[in-house]
Each structure stands twice: as C-alpha cells, then as structure tokens.
Design a protein around this nucleic acid. Structure first.
Length: 512
RNA sequence: GGCGGGGUAGCUCAGUUGGUUAGAGCGCGGGACUCAUAAGCCCGAGGUCAGUGGUUCGAUCCCACUUCCCGCUACCA
C-alpha cells in the first residue's frame, strides 16, 4: 500500500488581493494535508500563484510596472497569506519561475512532437469593448451591424494565428477515463456537469496567443505565448521537478492524489488537464474536487462593519483557528457556504469556547486542584469508561474513510459528538463528589484526560495551533501526533506532570 | 431555451432504497448541579418536510404539473 499523498490548491491568480475564497481552498487543503501526515502518509502539499496572462500584463501596465515586478509584489501577498493561514505547504510555486517555464515548454514539446498541437487560425466575432469572442448564435444584426446579443456591443471578424490542441480527439478517451475512474471528479453533481459537457462535443482548443507577450514562449515559435491554462495547470508537475521524472518527488507523488479547486475552474482541471496529460502519455491526477463558493450574507456587507470576506481582517479580529474551524465546520463541503460574522461569533462561543475550551479547562483545573497536575496512576475502567473511550476505535475506519472521500462534515460532526459526550461524562461522573474514593476519582480524571487527548489529536488538522497548545501541555510533540493513537485508551503515561494551559478561546461579547 | 440540483423547525443544514411520535447544531423557555471561560448537564416549546394532483394499505421520500432559487450551457482567468 502506497503511503504517498499529494494535494494541491489552485494556484491563485494575483490580479487582485486574496479573498475568503482563496483562504477557504487553502485551509481545506491544509486540513487534508495535516490529516494525512498524522495518519503516517508522506505528504506533499502545494500551493502558489499563477502569474501569466493578459490581465496581469494590463494590470501591470496600468500601474506603470513591468509584469514581473508587479507579480512579485502581488504574489507576495498570497505567500504571506499562506503564512497567516498557517499552511503546512511543502512548496510555493510561481509560474514565473524558471523551473516552471522549463517544465511547461517540455510538456509543450511533447505535445507538439506527438502531433497533438498544430498551427492554424483562430477566428471569430470579437468585441473589443467586451474583450470577448462570440459565436454565430450569440450575435445579431442591428442596423446592418453585427452586435453581441448580450452586451449589444459591436463585434468584428478577427483572425489570429494560433496553435491548437487536438482536444476533439480526446472526447471519447476522456469519457472512457471518467467511466473507469468514477471518483475522478467530485462531488458527483459536478462530475455529471463535466460529462454532459464533454458528451456535447469538444472542439480543438486554442493554446497559444499572439496578441500579448506576458507568458511562456512557444519554444518553436517565439511570437506566441502559451495559453495560460496549459501554463498554469502544469505547475502541479513543475513542483515535482518535471520533466525529470526520475527524481524522488516525481516518482513518489505523481499522479497527484487530489487537486482541490473551486467549482469555477472545474472544466480546466477535469477536461483540459487530463486531456493534455493523456495526450502526453502522462498519468492524469487521481481526483479533482470542485468545492463550492464562500458567500457572505447579503445584509452583512455593511460598510460600517467592514467586509466579512476579507480573511485578514477576520483573522486579526478573531484569530486564525476560529476562522479555520468555522469554515471547515459550517460550510457543507462541496456546496456553497454562507458565512457571516454573527455565525462565526456563535461558532466560536459555543463550539470552541464553551465546548472544547471549557472541557479542557475544567478537567485540567480539576487535575491541578486535586492531583497536582499529575496523570493519575491508580485507576480501573468500568463499563461506562470503556464505552466512551471505545467510540473512537469503533468508528475509526469510518473516520479515515470520511477523509479519503472528502466527507469533512462527518469528521467534524464526530468531533462535536465526542465533545458533548465528554462534557456529559464529566458531569455525570461528578468527580467533585468522589474525593473520598481516590481510585474512582483517578479513573474519571484519567478517562477525561484521554478524551481530551483524542479529541485534540482529531482537531489538530483543523485548528493546529490550539490543538498543539493542549497536546504540548500533555507533553505530546507535534512530530509525534498520530491519528492511530486515538484508538489507544492508555496512551498518557501515568504520573507525568502536565502543564497548565491558558484559556484557549476567548468568548466573544455579543452586544445586541 | 436545453440539461442538472434544490426548496425540511426562528437560523444553518442532515435525513428518509415509502411504514408506528421527521433529526442535529445554534437560538429560545424551564429545571437540577457547581469541577470549569455565568461554561457544562437534563427537560421542553417550535415543522401542514414549497404548492396541487396522482400511484399506494400508507408519501416528506416515487410520478406529473405549478411556483421559487441555484448550477452548467468552452477558449477572461
């Protein structure tokens, strides 16, 4: 059984500053990466920026900058965000790097050599004001002039020399590929969209541009730059040192386990990308998951409160882990999620402060007052104790499966149930009434500590900083965190002295 | 227009391969306790499961229609 796991975020297009959608993709990818690491996998987690294309070139010109300096500046904001979000990425790739350029040109050459690319003319009705091409049925005749039906702007017939990728040829192979790999595109509803699209017929794809220069040159014809998507998608290979397919990274991690993307760029990842790769005889990735969008409640966009969608502002105000937890917990993964400051505050108070934070606090402070912070030694589990501890092994396989099938919500719900159960356990056992029964008191505390340990391990991929505060207080180092340890009931060494922890999550004062 | 998904408690959502009292979290009301971040625990109120019609012994779940919302319908990324 191979224990390698390669996960990617989209590489972000730095034409504007990072928003909540970027943060969401990254946070979820980090969640999977961290989980697989504590499951013992060798993980390669990649993120980065996609820096070529006309839009960037124009944005740079507007600012009176050369495109590269412009990209350096904006790419840095995304790099900084990856730090702010505490991402555990192994690499941060930029498409303006030499290693990437080499990789893209190499892929291009393969395609060209295999006759998958040919030179022809791109023609169509182009609207200068819309910066868009329209097909015959999208234009109409008004006052003897051809205009776009949608925008009404005048269109003109344009022809431009362009290289084409023989996408049409890959229609049937793609459909076959989807059929043989039913989980290649997830969630299922998205897969159906893609399959319908492919079934409706694929035209050859224009994969070069002459109209602007900010991109990777076509090796055989320097007047052309390579189409941004062929360029951008290849980043997933470049970071593994492609075209050197004999190096360790490539051999271990390709094909990628999962490309995590937003639903808006599904087509590029689910159609073009596997088509390019099949054509080049490179294995396509194993899975493409198109998650939903993060939306903010309509009335929440008030100017006075500021824009909820700005991840940096939210993190400054509430902290990183609360945002990570909130996004992972409350967004139904795969669907669009409505977020609001109000919901975030509720989530922090109930789930993090009252439930998890307070559980840690009440148990540890009880341990301090009664057992001088030492893990109890003389104890014996009864049926109730065993039952609550056993939940974790009973459902362990389901938990692991939920991650492998990207059922994040199952995973988080399980944690929440265990938090409720643990608080209830402490309540029902009433250790404060058992001070004369030392052995029972020891047992209740040992069980409670074990529950906190197990839950904190499970929380590590979601809220690494907070989880680590607890685990470190339990003398568990980050490197030694192992998801399999939640199956153990006596993992905490007896008599060891634990450390105090400060309040994990401060409650938000609600004023209304 | 075509294809697809959806309308379930105040809010966010789960669920039912059709079967006695439809679930969770949050919010709300009440109770007992006190280790804890006035946290936690227990109990409770709240739903004609979008509407209409049909199939069925029986439908929230199947079918048809109506209505509302959303997604996809290729070369901006």
């Amino acid at each position: 059984m191979k224990k390698d796991f390669y996960i990617t975020t989209p590489i972000y297009y730095p034409s504007a500053k990072p928003h909540m959608g970027h943060a969401y993709s990254s946070i979820v990818a980090d969640f999977f990466a961290r989980f697989k690491r504590i499951q013992g996998y060798d993980v390669f987690f990649l993120t980065g920026t996609d820096e070529h294309g006309q839009k960037i070139q124009r944005a740079a010109e507007k600012r009176g900058m050369d495109p590269k300096s412009f990209c350096d500046e904006i790419s840095k904001t995304f790099f900084d965000l990856s730090k702010t979000l505490n991402l555990s990425n192994n690499d941060f790739i930029r498409t303006t790097e030499k290693r990437h350029e080499k990789s893209v040109q190499y892929l291009w050459n393969i395609l060209e050599k295999k006759n998958e690319i040919y030179l022809s003319k791109y023609s169509g009705w182009y609207s200068v004001s819309d910066e868009a091409f329209y097909s015959d049925d999208e234009i109409e005749l008004v006052n003897d002039k051809k205009v776009s039906k949608t925008s009404g702007s005048i269109v003109e017939w344009v022809e431009e020399e362009s290289f084409f990728f023989k996408l049409s040829k890959w229609q049937e192979p793609l459909l076959k590929f989807y059929k043989e790999n039913p989980n290649f595109i997830l969630p299922e509803s998205r897969r159906n969209e893609v399959i319908n699209f492919v079934k409706s017929g694929l035209k050859d794809l224009s994969v070069s541009r002459k109209s602007f220069s900010w991109g990777i040159k076509v090796p055989s014809n320097k007047e052309h730059v390579i189409y941004v998507w062929l360029d951008a998608l290849t980043n997933y290979l470049s970071a593994l040192n492609f075209p050197d397919t004999n190096n360790k990274l490539y051999k271990s991690f390709w094909p990628a386990t999962i490309h995590l993307i937003g639903k808006d760029i599904l087509r590029f990842h689910a159609i073009y990308w596997p088509a390019f790769l099949l054509a080049a005889e490179i294995k396509p990735p194993k899975r493409v998951y198109g998650h939903g969008w993060i939306l903010s409640g309509e009335e929440k966009m008030s100017k006075s409160k500021g824009n909820i969608l700005d991840p940096i502002e939210i993190i400054n105000k509430y902290g990183l882990d609360p945002l990570r937890y909130y996004l992972i917990k409350e967004v139904s993964f795969g669907n669009d999620g409505n977020i609001s400051q109000d919901k975030l505050e509720n989530c922090i108070n109930s789930d993090l402060a009252n439930n998890y934070g307070n559980l840690c606090q009440r148990v540890i402070s009880f341990l301090e007052k009664n057992l001088e912070m030492k893990v109890p030694n003389n104890f014996e589990f009864n049926i109730d104790d065993k039952k609550i501890l056993d939940t974790f092994n009973k459902d362990f396989n389901k938990l692991v499966d939920s991650i492998d099938s990207q059922d994040i919500n199952y995973y988080v719900n399980f944690i929440q149930e265990q938090l409720f159960a643990s608080n209830k356990y402490f309540n029902d056992q009433e250790p404060w009434k058992k001070k004369e029964n030392k052995k029972r008191l020891n047992t209740i505390l040992y069980v409670s500590l074990e529950l906190i340990r197990k839950i904190s391990v499970m929380l590590y991929p979601i809220i690494p900083n907070s989880s680590l505060k607890v685990l470190k207080a339990f003398n568990i180092s980050e490197e030694s965190i192992d998801i399999n340890s939640i199956k153990l009931h006596e993992n905490l060494k007896i008599n060891q002295k634990l450390n105090k922890i400060s309040i994990l999550f401060k409650k938000i004062e609600k004023n209304d």
